[in-house]
């Protein structure tokens, strides 16, 4: 997760990933809106965490997006983990 250590880099990457995954233009994504707004249900959230793990090379709780349910909350948490690592 070296190259994604800063919050900004993480946010950029997550916005790109979600944009591709959800087939939604980046401009339509609101970093403070709950993931549920984009049609992601609870199990989709678990699936996305598995994608995140693969990209970041770290193990995350499968319920990560349940506890940090917006892009900004998720990014802030991941950055905090990254700075501790």
């Amino acid at each position: 997760m070296n190259q994604l250590r800063t919050e900004e880099a993480l946010r950029e990457w997550l916005m790109d990933h979600l944009s591709k995954t959800l087939k939604t233009p980046r401009s339509h994504l609101d970093a403070d809106a709950p993931f549920a707004r984009y049609g992601l249900n609870s199990l989709d959230g678990v699936t996305l965490v598995m994608d995140l793990e693969e990209q970041l090379g770290i193990e995350l709780p499968p319920t990560l997006l349940w506890d940090y349910p917006t892009i900004n909350k998720c990014v802030a948490h991941l950055a905090a983990i990254g700075s501790e690592a």
Partner: peptide, 8 residues
């Protein structure tokens, strides 16, 4: 494969 979200 690509991600397909939701119950649809």
């Amino acid at each position: 494969a690509e991600f397909e979200n939701g119950h649809r």
